[in-house]
Design a protein around this nucleic acid. Structure first.
Lengths: 187, 187
DNA sequence: GTCTATACACCGATAGAC
DNA sequence: GTCTATCGGTGTATAGAC
C-alpha cells in the first residue's frame, strides 16, 4: 500500500471519528499496518498523521477547487466547477469536513494555523472571482464567507439529521446566488 | 454547588473540548468535585453527564428560543427575539454549539436521537412562524433549514478563524431575510 | 455527599527481532 | 519495512472510609 493510499485511509478515520476518537488501533486496522509500522512512516505519531492528512487534503482542495476558481473561464462557470468538486470532496454531503471536525476537537490548537489558512485561502480565492465579476471588494469578501459558511453548516445538518438535501440545495443555488446583482434592501 | 451550577460547568467543558476531549479529570477540576462525587450525581458516568447537559441545553433552547417563536407578536418581532437569544446562547459566537460538537465526535451515535430531535424541533418551530407569515409550507421549511445551517456554519467559522463577524452578520440579516417576499429568480 | 485509593482497560509510543 | 511484545501514562469507573 502506497503512502497515498495509507493517507487516504487515515483521512477516512479522522473525518469519521474526529481526532481524539481516532485511535492508533483504528488507524492500524484501517491501513492494515501494525502500529509500529505507522510510526515508521510517521515518526512523530498521531499528530504527524493528522498533519499529513491535512496537507493531503489541502493539496486536493488546491487541485480540485482553487485551481478551477483561478481558471480563465467565465466567473459563473468557474464557480460551477467549484461546486461540482465540492460535492465530490464531501461525497454529496455524506462525509464531514476535516477542518470542521478538527476545529471542534480538543486538539484544535494543534491544527489551528492549518485550519485557518485553508479556510482563508478558500474564502479569498472565491472572493477574488467575485471581484473579477464586478462585485465590490468587501461585498465579495462577505459573499465568499457566506458561501463557505453555508457549506459548513449544511454538512453539520447532513451529519446531524441524516439528510443531505440541504447540502445539495446549498450547492445548487450557490453559483447564481454568489453572482446576483446587488439590490438595495434585497434581503 | 447546586446541580444546575454543576451542569453549567459540565456544559462549558463539553462545548470547549468535545466529548472525547472532556475527561473526568477536567470535569472534576471544573466543578470542584472529586470524580467519585460526580459518579454520585451521575451514576452512569460520562455519558449520563453529557445527556444531562444535552437535556439542560434543550430546556434553555425551549425557554429562550422556541417559546419566543411560538409567541403571539408579529412574526418579524418573534424572529428578532430569537436572534437576540441565539446571540446570547452562543456568547456572540465565542462558544460552539453543543449539538455540532457532539455530532462531529466519535460518540455521535450515543446522542444521535437527541441531536436530531433538537435540530428538527428548532427548524420546525421556525418554519411554523414563516407559514404564519404567509410563506408557502415547503418554502418555509427550506428557509428555516437555511437559517439553522447558516448559524451552524458561522459558528464553525468563528471557531476556525477566531472571527465572530460572520456570526453576527448572519444573525443580523436573518429576520428580514427569512421574511422577504418571494421573488422569481431572486437568487 | 464527598473524599482517597485503586482497579483495569486502553491510549500513544517504543524496543528490538526479523 | 513490518512485526510482536511491552512500556508508562491516563482514561473511565468503583470500593469503601468518613
Amino acid at each position: 500500500m502506497s503512502r497515498e493510499e495509507v493517507i487516504a485511509q487515515l483521512t477516512k478515520m479522522f473525518r469519521q471519528y474526529g481526532y481524539e476518537g481516532t485511535t492508533l488501533a483504528r488507524l492500524s486496522e484501517a491501513t492494515g499496518l501494525g502500529k509500529a509500522s505507522l510510526y515508521h512512516h510517521f515518526p512523530k505519531g498521531k499528530e504527524e498523521m493528522a498533519q499529513a492528512v491535512l496537507e493531503s487534503m489541502s493539496d486536493r482542495v488546491e487541485a480540485s477547487i482553487l485551481a478551477s476558481l483561478r481558471g480563465c473561464g467565465e466567473p459563473l462557470e468557474r464557480i460551477r466547477v467549484m461546486t461540482t468538486n465540492v460535492d465530490k470532496l464531501y461525497s454529496s454531503g455524506k462525509q464531514s469536513c476535516l477542518l470542521a471536525v478538527l476545529a471542534l476537537s480538543e486538539a484544535k490548537d494543534l491544527f489551528h494555523n492549518e485550519i485557518q489558512n485553508a479556510l482563508n485561502l478558500w474564502i479569498n480565492t472565491l472572493a477574488q472571482v467575485l471581484v473579477e465579476a464586478g462585485i465590490e471588494h468587501s461585498q465579495a469578501q462577505q459573499r465568499a464567507e457566506d458561501a463557505i459558511l453555508k457549506i459548513q453548516g449544511s454538512l453539520i445538518l447532513a451529519r446531524s439529521l441524516d439528510n443531505t438535501a440541504p447540502f445539495k440545495r446549498v450547492l445548487d443555488r450557490l453559483p447564481e446566488e454568489l453572482l446576483q446583482i446587488e439590490r438595495k434592501q434585497s434581503k
